[in-house]
Design a protein around this nucleic acid. Structure first.
Length: 823
DNA sequence: TGGAGGTTCCCC
DNA sequence: GGGAACCTCCAT
């Protein structure tokens, strides 16, 4: 009897010849496949090699044996190799179990994953984990089907099996067969062995059930909507917010799912609104596409430039530089139309899906149902459906956050990245990629242009535009209609010199009371929640500190709690100092809660609301506050970044930045850039309607370039100053940064490991540290880091192998290439 | 001495 | 992730 090769006893001589790479064995090759498995379930180096039996193509989902288990993986490489090259004997090669029907990662995405792995120093399986269709593993189902009839004589049971299969339409699921008596199951297996029935893994057939999609749109009765917002807005905040978001989105029908996503509400809210007649149901075919507005000359120039790059298949990067209201979106849409007309697809990236309501609805009204929106509200099943819809070419526009770059688009013609400067484009978990960098590689792979849009571009992108690597297109702001607010800088050091620093400088306080007298509204911005950042004992100097992190515990007066804003740890406020038992334990510094309190004293008649993460954590509270403010049931709104993004409040004429210095004092070389961006954005909240706006920026650093240039709405001025500083100190874009983060519960072990990393790094590199991180302890883990400054085009392979050579028990070492946060 | 419980390290 | 193999410590 023939036995499988692996069972033949091996003679010592045979083994010797393999080890020595002898002529007979060492030089013969086999066709093999590299299969990437899920790194979470197959370990860090989850790339395994299997014999290639010719069934699987590159990118195919396959089931493979690993140890005694089966695992789902994706074919990432097909090649011929000798045993030496493999590093193990051919007889140890296993074959794949089977190819999963109908799931294949496009070749471009495999190349993109390789780029991510090389650029961000992670393994290919980790890079690939962001490309794979979500939840396939859970949706796999074995299916029995009829195979080739053989001449052999069949038992009664076997005949019964074939008859059952025929009656079931030639196919039975694994579950259906599993429910049959054991004897019959054995017969299935026997018939499979002789090829008369087949058993394959495939996606469970839920996908076939595709219901006709129903859409909703706002009623055209605007008076009814306004009446609802005024009278019922307070009682039904979720419904009111939904209406406001839909108003902001501007009209076209959306699916209930999309409405849920953009307002953060449930199906119930949507249904209630439909019941009340404020939303109307429409079917897909009723949707009329809107007629695009005529572009102005600057927009037309931009569109022409991008369009010719699309038709010439040039992977040019454009920077579309213009303030809000300058018409960037119209350029995106026209360029997108161009790509679609050529039978290619469009990828539209946004930093946060909740803030992209206008983009979604404009895409919808311009391009109809071929738009797929990816967002965090999707269930796993919905994600998988969307993934397949995109892969099958049914969706020609994909809109989503950074993860959308890995959508399986087969023939991309245009990439749009709106608000390209946003830090949300950097992924802070492995793979730690920056979507801007990856998107540009994707554009190169597809041979299509990429349009980066911003009013305050990243210094990196604008610098490249100056150097010519990126084509700059400026859109001048529109004249009369969108007037920029006046910005006044208020020097807080004056207040200290006069002895008693007030919460608001007199000019700002006056401006607010004048606005209130005219029936207008004001927003006050402070980028720090809680009442005060810490409590301090007036007798012994003790400060409240988190037991798990190296930060102070913030004082939350309303809750009577001390909270850590890093790890969430909270304790009841002690009545006396834990160190000296003094009762003079007082709040120091400023938070939104205290601003709110101060405003109530300053403007006792005003209706004041607050919006920050503490408020928004209560379900429905965000909606309540926003709809009350919008309905003018509130005069002054105090808040963090949350108030700077998203909604338009046309009646707001005064915006005050309570302390611009909080973001300036962050120990990070980008803090100036971030402050400029933040101030520009906050300033944009004033005077959005027909009324002129005034912005007041209170600061201890009135001379800081970020403050001075934000006052003049002068991005270029800020850029020129900031870029010189970057060059002088040696930061991006002039050098490349790599941050190596070493963490663990044992401080000594972390210290030792960080030293070992230092020693393992190749000589000749500029290495800062190892040093404690600005946040030296987080969640009971000590943190040290090394910062590498490398030439912009450095080969990082040596850095990776140096880091991987270090292994200290309980210590993890993470490499962050092109870090966005250094704390 | 053995077995319970923890840790490490392979899986192609 | 899961299982084998290896390691450690202590009760007997």
């Amino acid at each position: 009897m023939l036995r499988p090769v692996r069972d033949i006893p091996r003679s010592p001589g045979w083994r010797l010849s393999t080890q020595l790479g002898g002529r007979d064995h060492g030089e013969s090759t086999r066709a093999v496949l590299d299969v990437a498995l899920d790194p979470k379930s197959a370990g860090r180096r989850a790339l395994w090699t299997y014999a290639d039996n010719g069934d699987a193509a590159l990118g195919d989902a396959v089931l493979v044996p690993i140890g005694k288990r089966q695992a789902l993986g994706f074919v990432v490489r097909r090649y011929e190799a000798t045993a030496d090259e493999l590093g193990f004997r051919f007889d140890e090669l296993k074959s794949i179990i089977e190819v999963v029907n109908g799931i294949r990662i496009p070749g471009v995405l495999l190349d993109l994953a390789k780029f991510v792995a090389e650029t961000y120093l992670c393994s290919l399986p980790v890079a690939l984990s962001v490309c794979v269709p979500p939840g396939v593993r859970e949706r796999l189902e074995g299916a029995w089907s009829l195979g080739a009839p053989a001449g052999e004589k069949l038992s009664v049971v076997q005949q019964e099996v074939l008859r059952t299969l025929q009656e079931a339409g030639g196919e039975l699921s694994e579950a259906e067969v599993g429910a049959l008596p054991e004897g019959i199951q054995r017969a299935f297996k026997a018939l499979r062995a002789s090829g008369q029935v087949n058993f394959v893994q495939r996606l469970a057939p839920f996908l076939e059930r595709r219901q006709k999609e129903k859409l909703v749109r706002l009623t055209s009765d605007e008076a009814a909507i306004e009446a609802f917002l005024r009278s019922e807005g307070k009682r039904k905040p979720a419904q009111a917010l939904t209406l406001m978001r839909l108003q902001a989105a501007g009209g076209p029908p959306l699916s209930p799912l999309e409405v849920r996503a953009l307002a953060g509400v449930t199906e119930t809210t949507v249904r209630a609104l439909a019941q009340e007649g404020l939303l109307e149901w429409v079917t897909t075919d009723e949707v009329k596409l809107s007629v695009p507005p005529t572009p102005n000359p600057e927009q037309q120039l931009a569109v022409d430039a991008i369009s010719s790059a699309i038709s010439d298949r040039e992977s040019t990067a454009f920077l579309l530089f213009g303030v809000t209201g300058s018409g960037k979106t119209e350029v995106y849409l026209r360029a997108a139309a161009q790509a679609l007309a050529m039978g290619r697809q469009v990828l539209y990236l946004v930093p946060e899906i909740a803030l992209a309501t206008q983009a979604i609805s404009q895409m919808r009204s311009r391009f109809g149902r071929g738009v797929a929106v990816l967002h965090s509200e999707l269930t796993q099943l919905e994600r998988l459906r969307t993934w397949l819809r995109i892969a099958n070419g049914e969706a020609s526009v994909v809109l989503g956050p950074r993860s959308a770059i890995f959508a399986p688009l087969p023939n991309l013609g245009l990439i749009v990245m709106d608000e390209e400067h946003e830090s949300a484009y950097k992924q802070e978990q492995s793979p730690r990629y920056h979507a801007r960098t990856v998107a540009r590689e994707l554009a190169r792979l597809h041979g299509c242009p990429i349009v980066l849009g911003s009013a305050t571009p990243s210094l990196e992108t604008f610098y490249e535009a100056e150097k010519g690597g990126v084509t700059l297109i400026s859109l001048p702001s529109r004249a009369a209609s969108a007037q920029m607010p006046t910005v006044e800088i208020c020097d807080l050091t004056q207040g200290y010199r006069n002895g008693k620093p007030a919460l608001l400088v007199p000019e700002l306080a006056t401006a607010i009371s004048d606005a209130l007298a005219r029936g207008e509204q004001a927003i006050l911005f402070l980028n720090r929640r809680a009442y005060a950042p810490f409590l301090m004992c007036r007798d012994c100097g003790y400060r409240t500190a988190c037991p798990q992190c190296s930060v102070a515990l913030s004082y939350h007066r309303g809750e009577r709690k001390l909270r850590c804003h890093q790890c969430g740890h909270s304790v009841v406020v002690p009545s006396e100092c834990p160190k000296c038992t003094s009762t003079r334990l007082n709040p120091f510094g400023l938070g939104t809660e205290k601003v709110e309190e101060g405003l109530r004293e300053l403007f006792p008649a005003a209706r004041i609301g607050r919006l920050d993460r503490d408020i928004a954590s209560r379900k429905g509270a965000l909606e309540e506050v926003l709809s009350a403010f919008r309905a003018q049931d509130m005069d002054i709104l105090v808040g963090t970044q949350m108030v700077a993004k998203g909604l338009d409040f046309p009646n707001v004429t005064v915006v005050g930045v309570v302390a611009a210095d909080i973001s300036l004092s962050v120990p990070d070389f980008r803090s100036g850039e971030r402050t400029f961006q933040l101030l520009s954005q906050v300033a944009g909240r004033a005077g959005r309607g027909s009324l002129p706006g005034r912005v007041f920026v209170q600061t201890f650093n009135p001379e800081h370039p970020a403050v001075v240039h934000a006052q003049g709405h002068d991005y270029v001025g800020f850029f020129e100053e900031a870029i010189l500083e970057r060059q002088g100190v040696g930061y991006p874009p002039f050098l490349r940064l790599v941050n190596i983060l070493v963490t663990g519960p044992d401080r000594e072990a972390v210290g030792k490991a960080s030293g070992l990393v230092r020693d393992a790094l190749p000589s000749g590199l500029t290495v800062l540290g190892p040093a404690d991180c600005p946040l030296e302890r987080l969640n009971n883990r000590w943190r040290r880091h090394l910062l590498l400054k490398l030439p912009a085009v450095a080969d990082l392979a040596e850095v990776q192998s140096a880091v991987e050579s270090v292994s200290v028990r309980g210590v993890s070492v993470v490499i962050d290439v092109d870090p966005v946060s250094l704390s």
